[in-house]
Design a protein around this nucleic acid. Structure first.
Length: 236
DNA sequence: CTCAGCTTTCCTGCTT
DNA sequence: GAAGCAGGAAAGCTGA
């Protein structure tokens, strides 16, 4: 579905870049390249004092960086080449395009942008409040819970690499295909190179108690429970 | 500082 | 026998 959204959709007015290019490769190495206000210290209202449609490319870049910093979004999810665009182009992007350009983070970025557009001048705290009042908790993706990590992986085929697959999407039943790869990914996420699937599975079994996962009497197969949210639809 | 929740680590025993 | 699962116990980490 998302494959139908081509890069040219986003980059019609920009250079064609490698989707895997890093932030600095695309936007330059330092803020010296495009000196603007320091959003980290004194511009909480900057993103809302200027309507997103009037943002420059650099503003868009800084907004992304701001969101990554502020909401601890995983910058690795974001294909920055897709965001080498003006604010007007950014505003014209659909939710699907955000998803395509930034995976899981795209959902949050889209939500943040829409709130800035709708609510005009709102403070960072207000944005945070809006995020917190969203259907699903928008939190530190880097330190998200294990079950959220698993859920997000299932919902992100581009990151999944066949590590997890749905057994019965309707019932929330999934299979761990590459257990060691999953453990390695989780270990990387938690900066713990000693993580193993044995330990990870112990943590998954912990979720049986809390209703986040339900027991399935099949090897490497788990099922989301009533207390797990966000796996039902293609949105989290 | 305390506490609770979550995760990690280690372990034994069982099942496939 | 190997791999995986189940679950107890304890410790570590983190945020409220």
């Amino acid at each position: 579905m998302l494959d139908s959204v081509t890069h040219s959709t986003f980059l019609s007015n920009t250079m064609v870049c490698d989707p895997l290019m890093s932030w600095t490769e695309i936007f330059g190495t330092t803020e010296d390249d495009y000196p603007t206000c320091d959003h980290r210290t004194d511009s909480d209202s900057f993103w809302t004092s200027i309507h997103p449609e009037h943002w420059s490319k650099h503003n868009v870049c800084e907004w992304l960086q701001f969101c990554c910093d502020q909401y601890k979004l995983d910058a690795n999810c974001i294909s920055f080449s897709h965001f080498n665009i003006s604010g007007l182009q950014l505003c014209n992007m659909t939710q699907e395009e955000f998803l395509d350009a930034a995976g899981i983070c795209g959902e949050y970025l889209y939500f943040i942008l829409q709130n800035i557009r709708m609510h005009g001048e709102c403070s960072r705290n207000q944005i945070k409040h809006l995020l917190n009042s969203c259907l699903l908790p928008v939190q530190d993706l880097q330190s998200s819970h294990l079950w959220e990590f698993v859920r997000d992986l299932l919902l992100s085929p581009e990151e999944n690499s066949g590590i997890l697959e749905w057994e019965d999407r309707g019932q929330g039943i999934f299979r761990v295909v590459k257990s060691e790869a999953l453990a390695k990914m989780w270990g990387q996420r938690k900066k713990n190179d000693r993580m193993t699937y044995e330990k990870l599975s112990r943590a998954l079994r912990y979720y049986y108690k809390t209703g986040i996962l339900e027991r399935v009497d099949r090897r490497l197969v788990y099922k989301f429970g009533k207390n797990a949210h966000g796996w039902q639809e293609n949105k989290i």
